[in-house]
Design a protein around this nucleic acid. Structure first.
Lengths: 215, 215, 215, 215
DNA sequence: TATGAATGAGTATTCATTCAT
DNA sequence: CATGAATGAATACTCATTCAT
């Protein structure tokens, strides 16, 4: 899936990069306050520190700004997550660290993540697949850790169960943001992380019941 | 939290009821295609089968339509969920039935649920608390089943863990809709239900490891 | 100039009369608060005590209400003025009494008169001449008193001067309403009446200067 | 009373000035035909020679146009009046000149003045005091001339009588416009001016009757 | 490259009027 | 006669986008 090409009238790639960073920074600040639809292009330009005319030198449409925002948020989430993942831990602890790190990143980038989740449906049609792919890539990071655990014998899971666990961990992270009106009132991040980790890994039922593992 | 009063120029309560049903039905169909912001009031009126003037005889503003939609979706979700919950099952099986039923309802009402989740941020300011309360009420249904399991000795969970499990089950249901681009490709509903149930209840780790249960 | 015919679906003339009185009463109350354009027909109907459907049984259009209001106000102004005019005074005193009475009526009916003056430009095209004729008729009442004074030798004025005086007296009355934001702060009605009377009749210059009386 | 600030999206003050002049010119033409309420913003824009979008670059609301019109009319009335007032005449003649000049200006600017009087009730709430102040300022110009006449011994009037005379002269001017359907048929401007002057200054009664001057 | 004035299609909302009951 | 629900033309105002300077 190729990265969507956002058109620009300007040649200097360095400049394009810089301007778009300004733009994204301003846009995120605005989107988190008022949402994508209620934010005007004029406001974005102003917040970014240049004129509306200049804004359109670096994008083709308002939706491109949203795409740039999503792209940038994903990039930062990934970068931050990777920077938290040292290679020192192994086994189940490794998986626990991944969960903890992911939740930490989600907590640090709450607003950005929320914006992305709430507005991604307004993405330009061509951009959606690319963004979903990014989301898949994120999930794949988790998935690979789970897989390693399996290969190393710490877990014994079917392909599907691996995939499901990866989804659940991701959603556990997002949930900290999109249900924050409730969960952030009821739990501290540490409590949340701890409880989620326990549930995800050990479940809630005490006895080790035999289950159908055909799936 | 009082139900938000949506103003109407019409006196006949029966008629109001009927017209609003038409309106909500039309609106859901449109919102799921184009989202709240890209849907015009004229389109809503047309889809509902009456004129724009008539639409405004039954609401005060476009946002009221969204509120009516959310209110109606919650109501239907709850009704459907309750109709699926027979009182025959007990213990852990009861909890499994709740999960299965919830997921079933979410599957049946995918579009409506998705609309509600994606657009609820555009709700009129006064309506948001009421809608969040509805969401809480839904979660409370799950929570009470979990609590019963605890009381009956099938589970041994702290208050916070109970709450967390209820949240996770709810989100497990929503996830079937808002990650459908991925999960509905990878799993059938039955697989999804089965895997989620196993994870939520028994976790993924085989050994029964001792954990800090202070939370 | 024939009275404009306001159409009605109803036959019973008594009823028409009664309903229109209710309507005018309500309309005046509303027009004085918000003006003709900002008052809706629904509001008029409600204020009059019946439904919008009934309103349109007795008028052909919203403008007809304005016409009815103007007509009614003129009628009441004239009635009140005439009731104040006893036939006991004569000569210049008679003229003074007319001025005083007119001003009194204007004071009593401030809101109604103001409405009429401010909104009459919105009258239905066919109605304007009739209303202007009413205004002329009012002026003629004043004029006839002035004429009598002339005939009796108390005043010596040309035809045009008579007409002008009548206009000035009328406007002196209206001015008490349409400049009320200023004059009613600066003068009591008695002061106003007294000063206007003096100026209109005796002028402000002390010496009796010879003037060109060719006009 | 501060001048109401009409908001504009445009920075260039010169341009604002120019565009608003076009706007006011167009608006006066339309308001005089159809009144403020029956004139649409699109019509104003078109008459002014630009698009509806551009109109709203220079105002905040339709009512602002009315305010701009009133402000501009007052300014022009005052400018014209002052340009007619040479400092050559003195005494009562000075006062006569003021009256004549005022009436001349009212005649020249009939439509504008009429619009202002008929529509000022629709002014934005915050603007009304400012406009009334302008009207007061106009009256004050007349008043000061009357005062000078008093100081110089040509007139002997109480404070209240001075104020009243100023009001009467002003209204005499307006009356030429708002009763034009009648007075302009009956008198030429010269006749009107001459008769009004005579009445205002010398009254209509021949003998110099003793009056109560306590007011 | 940068600017910001100009554009006009688009949108929510109002309200006079009609007409079936 | 009375009612009030239905209608849809009309209207103020917004905002993404363009383009001349």
């Amino acid at each position: 899936m190729a990265k969507k090409k956002v058109p620009s009238m300007v040649k200097d790639q360095q400049l394009i990069q810089r301007r778009r960073e300004q733009m994204v920074k301003g846009a995120v600040a605005l989107f988190k306050q008022k949402g994508f639809h209620r934010t005007t292009t004029r406001e974005i330009a102003k917040e970014a520190g240049f004129s509306i005319g200049t804004l359109y030198e670096y994008i083709g449409s308002k939706e491109d700004v949203l795409y740039l925002v999503c792209d940038s948020v994903y990039e930062e989430v990934r970068t931050r997550l990777e920077s938290l993942l040292t290679n020192e831990t192994v086994g189940i602890d490794r998986l626990k660290q991944v969960i903890q790190s992911l939740f930490k990143v989600m907590d640090d980038m709450q607003d950005e993540v929320l914006v992305m989740y709430q507005e991604s449906k307004s993405l330009p049609k061509e951009a959606l697949p690319y963004v979903l792919e990014k989301e898949n890539a994120m999930t794949a990071i988790i998935e690979s850790t789970v897989k390693t655990c399996c290969k190393e014998g710490h877990l014994e899971l079917s392909e599907k169960a691996i995939r499901m666990l990866a989804h659940s961990i991701m959603v556990g992270g997002h949930m900290w943001t999109f249900r924050r009106w409730s969960v952030q009132k009821e739990f501290t991040l540490d409590e949340y992380t701890s409880l989620q980790t326990r549930q995800l890994l050990y479940g809630v039922v005490q006895e080790n019941i035999k289950m159908d593992k055909s799936i």
